[in-house]
Computed example of a mutant assay.
Amino acid sequence: MAVVKSGALRQALGTALLVSVLTGCSVIGLGGKQTKEAPLDSYTPEQIYEMGEKELEVQKNPKASLRYFQEVERLYPYTEWAKRGLIMQAYTLHQTKKYDEARDAAQRYLDFYPGDEDAAYAQYLLALSYYDQIDEVGRDQGLTFQALQALRVVIEQYPDSEYAKSAMLKFDMAFDQLAAKEMEIGRYYLKRGNYAAAINRFRTVVQDYQTTSYTAEALHRLVECYLALGFTDEAQTAAAILGYNYQSSPFYEDSFKLLKGRGLEPKVKGDGWLAKVYRQMIRGEWL
């Protein structure tokens, strides 16, 4: 059989081979036989990267795309396409919920390209790798602390980035999560009459998580605890803070009724930690 020397035919076969790799199909040769996918090192870094993009965006297959993004970094290190491939590894690993690996890829990006325009996105992905693992309140909150730390970096180091606003919203939600954990434990102790342990938890919310949605309830629970222990000065002071900040809250109504039932009223008394909080609040140093 004569050898085909047509340049146009050779170009067409080369195009068919590339398309086959992009679509995940085998190429049909001249004899009707399937040919294997060419080794990735026979392609340019741009072509390999585009293979990964096609799997991700067209085929909606992040797992398949990951291979291409990893290979472009391995085969062509220190190139622009290797850099792009690395940030896309972090993204696709996060999409497939391989959070530890996503975090590692994002951190590598930050280590190699700290001044790059996508560094903010890498830090945001790193923070998300913690944030998206935060489960229900009842579980350990170690990941919440790590998410807060990573989100704070986005907010403080990349305040003008498009990710700063989202990071701030997620920071507030994670912060609320920590307060919720303290409240859950505090309620547990309160129901069992362990008032000292409950007070410690509610105090943490008032002092450390005062911007969260749980502060009003924490103050009311402090009123309950202190009344149960006979510490009326502290109970009245907690109610005074509650009334000053959350007078329309049903928690304030409940605290007011509790005090009224004992002939007491919301009022700052004594010089305990709550009285100090109240004075700080009046000077605008609280909330």
Score class of each variant (00 low, 15 high):
residue 152 R to M: 10
residue 100 D to I: 11
residue 197 A to L: 11
residue 177 Q to G: 08
residue 158 Y to S: 08
residue 107 Q to F: 05
residue 201 R to Y: 00
residue 97 K to T: 11
residue 202 F to Q: 01
residue 95 Q to G: 00
residue 206 V to I: 15
residue 161 S to M: 13
residue 169 L to T: 08
residue 164 A to E: 14
residue 104 D to G: 01
residue 177 Q to W: 11
residue 99 Y to L: 14
residue 138 G to Y: 10
residue 190 L to Y: 04
residue 179 A to H: 04
residue 115 G to S: 12
residue 167 A to K: 02
residue 105 A to R: 06
residue 193 G to K: 14
residue 172 D to S: 09
residue 133 Q to F: 02
residue 122 A to E: 03
residue 185 I to C: 05
residue 153 V to D: 13
residue 192 R to T: 05
residue 138 G to H: 06
residue 109 Y to L: 07
residue 196 A to D: 12
residue 200 N to P: 00
residue 89 Q to D: 12
residue 137 V to Q: 10
residue 177 Q to E: 13
residue 159 P to A: 10
residue 174 A to S: 10
residue 196 A to I: 13
residue 112 F to E: 11
residue 185 I to N: 06
residue 175 F to E: 12
residue 201 R to L: 02
residue 134 I to N: 04
residue 195 Y to I: 13
residue 170 K to I: 07
residue 170 K to E: 06
residue 121 Y to H: 04
residue 94 H to G: 08
residue 114 P to T: 03
residue 136 E to I: 08
residue 144 T to A: 13
residue 198 A to I: 07
residue 134 I to V: 12
residue 128 L to D: 05
residue 127 A to I: 06
residue 143 L to Y: 02
residue 110 L to A: 00
residue 152 R to D: 14
residue 180 A to T: 04
residue 155 I to M: 12
residue 94 H to T: 01
residue 141 Q to S: 09
residue 155 I to V: 09
residue 98 K to S: 13
residue 98 K to N: 15
residue 93 L to F: 02
residue 145 F to M: 09
